[in-house]
Design a protein around this nucleic acid. Sequence first.
DNA 1: TATATTTTTTAGATTAGACTAAAAAATATA
DNA 2: TATATTTTTTAGTCTAATCTAAAAAATATA
Lengths: 221, 221
Amino acid sequence: MLTQAIQDYLKLIYRFEAEGRRPSTNDLARGMDVAAASVTNMLKRLADLKLVTYASYRGVSLTDSGRLIALEMLRHHRLIETYLAQALGYSLDQLHDEAEHLEHHISEQFEERIDALLGYPRYDPHGDPIPSKEGLIPPRCNQALSEAALDVDWVVRRISDHSKELLRYLMHCHLVPETKLRIMDRAPFEGPLTLRIGETEVMVGYKAACYVYVEQVDRGA
Amino acid sequence: MLTQAIQDYLKLIYRFEAEGRRPSTNDLARGMDVAAASVTNMLKRLADLKLVTYASYRGVSLTDSGRLIALEMLRHHRLIETYLAQALGYSLDQLHDEAEHLEHHISEQFEERIDALLGYPRYDPHGDPIPSKEGLIPPRCNQALSEAALDVDWVVRRISDHSKELLRYLMHCHLVPETKLRIMDRAPFEGPLTLRIGETEVMVGYKAACYVYVEQVDRGA
DNA sequence: TATATTTTTTAGATTAGACTAAAAAATATA
DNA sequence: TATATTTTTTAGTCTAATCTAAAAAATATA
């Protein structure tokens, strides 16, 4: 079994690669909250284990087996979040911390049981796709609410779990996955948006709206 | 937070103390599957942390705060086992390994949620008492099936989770908590016992029966 | 009681993962 | 292009937890 530290480094590198960035040593040091020298140290070890390819001063990238481990952790994380929300009634802002610990410590069996119990969910409570056992991540909706068009019916599909404060604010505004809304007005200079959710009007700050991703509601259906 | 190693040492010392034994360095080395020197080393550290009282060559015992931590782990372990059995359908022989890992990694919140969901259970699936938050362990049934009287109605209250093999054998014989039975015959020289469980007769080896604890069924009720 | 055996501890090494300070390489600026 | 700045790596230290081999203490045996 790999250590938790190794799994965490792989996850972090994966996140950078997933958004098309090749992480620098400093990026990883900031992300792991350790000194840059510690990262260099670890990257050598990961390279010895054939989990990354790494050459001094040249940056790092995951090997296939490294990526597989990162994806397994991501799958655990999102499956556990879904379970905590559905089966144990956790709220959106309580999910991350618990899942971050548990993801390293569940067995294959546990994973399978909760997956089955939840009915093999494809998305976690934030709307992020849960990687399948085969490791593929299906595409996801990427239209920020902050930039979405007025006078159209939208449904929230995904929110970022950037921070607990953000999540609490979004919960307060009812901006959680599956909420249907219309944008009534958008103040100039990145000002607040006025939304209609059901019968009520809601104001949301521009910045927060950047972390909410919406999809157009099918007219026909 | 204490390390997992520390928690495991405390648990092991607790188990010895619970059966009235004062563990020797060698006892702990065998139990932890490490060298005796490693135990000496760790005992010094535990003593520094005021989790045990320890003097060279004099053996070890838990302090109140050490015992509290051991009890918290035991509570986690048994609560998790109960949860895995009730909510996720684990069988008796699958409980221990998963709980042994998870017990170190759940939050206070997780503990409370599963406790509530299970209806604040007092016994785990083996029939062992789940320590309450206050740390008290209620008494438990201690009459071994191997020594129990014939021609009386018994109910299994507790089985030891000595090993997976034992548990599988007991499951096969239907000797699990809440099973009602009568002892029909006991072969001499620690030979097998013949039981009547409901309509059917079951034979069980003497040794296995030593790990099954029974209580007399109330005549009136 | 004296000696032999067993148990426990000490001493010193190892590994994973962190640290700081200094050196080296890469990049940016004049 | 030469110099300054930033980034990365090297070198050496630290802690937790383990190990082995040897020494010391406790216990058992003659």
